[in-house]
Simulated assay, not measured.
Amino acid sequence: MAPELGKIGAWLNPAHGDEARLKYAVEAETLGYGTVWLGVGVTPVAGLDLVERVLDATESITVATAIVNMWTNPATEVARSYRRVVARHPDRFLLGVGIGHPESITSYQRPMDKMVEYLGQLDEGGVPADRRVLAALGPKALALAEARAAGSHPYLTVPEHTRRARRALGPARLLAPEQTVVVDPDPVIARRIARHFLTNPYLSLRNYVNNLLSLGFIEADLAEDGSDRLVDALVPHGTPESILARSVEHLAAGADHVGVQVLTDGWADPMPGYRALAEVVRETPLT
């Protein structure tokens, strides 16, 4: 069985650096977040060193990777590191894996074959299917997540995608989308921060672009630095109350958990946003 995630988690971007994220994770636990998601990107992290450090420094929060890139992290090494970590912390680690995006990897070929091969190697290495999630957006990847993992951790999506993903995964699989937000009531400032994040690089990546087009956005929404409609849908902004409302939409659409990524100007400390959001979460029943 997958570790308990709670309803809302803190998703920490690797741009903040490992030392800062270790500190943020410790505070996230005190604030009541159920899970801390450690963003990875394409960086080789097969040793899972930061995961182990965060687990050592905390008592109960679940730690998840988002995501260990299959192209840059050999499955045999990841499995070996997984066994080391769970020997010390048997019920608090969820391994998130995925193939990333083709533009970042020169050898990126036949992604479905790679995912199937990689999951098989994790099986052989002793990583149980119910202790891993697959980054999945499209139907084929979601079907693989349903068959070979605890579920899926989709990134940069909207509640409509969550509804589709729940139908694809069925009722029994874990669905834990990421939700990027800007905790700022000024829409001009918030959209500037969100646009900088989206255009570098997501609006130029074909897997994200194709997914957004399938969800009803049009080419004009994706042109240049994105329409206000697109920015507001992908990166809700405003008060903590309005931002929590978007997470509630994901939960109502079938998500079990939402990993909230708080964006800040210039990658400043995101914890003020997490503190404000946590206060609202404590006052709001989530089902």
Rank of each mutant, 00 (worst) to 15 (best):
M1T: 13
A2Q: 06
P3C: 12
P3D: 02
A15I: 14
A20E: 10
R21M: 14
L22W: 06
V26C: 01
L31H: 04
T35G: 12
V36G: 01
W37S: 08
V40A: 15
T43K: 14
P44K: 06
G47E: 13
L48Y: 06
V51W: 00
V51Q: 00
E52A: 10
V54G: 02
L55G: 04
L55N: 01
D56E: 15
I61A: 05
T62N: 02
A64W: 04
T65C: 10
N69G: 06
N69R: 05
W71N: 12
T76D: 15
R84P: 11
V86F: 10
V86A: 11
V86G: 08
R92L: 13
L94Q: 00
G100K: 01
P102T: 14
E103T: 07
I105T: 15
R110P: 02
P111T: 05
P111I: 06
Y118W: 01
R131E: 11
V133E: 01
V133R: 04
V133W: 02
A136T: 08
L137E: 06
A149P: 07
G151M: 06
H153C: 07
Y155P: 00
P159W: 12
T162E: 03
R167G: 11
A172E: 15
R173F: 08
L174R: 05
L175E: 12
V183K: 00
V183I: 15
V188W: 08
A190D: 01
R192E: 12
I193N: 11
Y202Q: 12
I218D: 15
D221E: 06
L222G: 13
D228R: 08
L234A: 02
G238S: 15
P240N: 13
R246T: 15
E249G: 10
E249F: 08
H250W: 03
A253G: 09
G254H: 03
A255F: 09
V258C: 07
V258D: 04
V258Q: 09
V260T: 01
Q261T: 02
A268Y: 05
A268C: 11
D269I: 10
P272H: 07
L277E: 05
L277C: 13
A278G: 06
V280D: 02
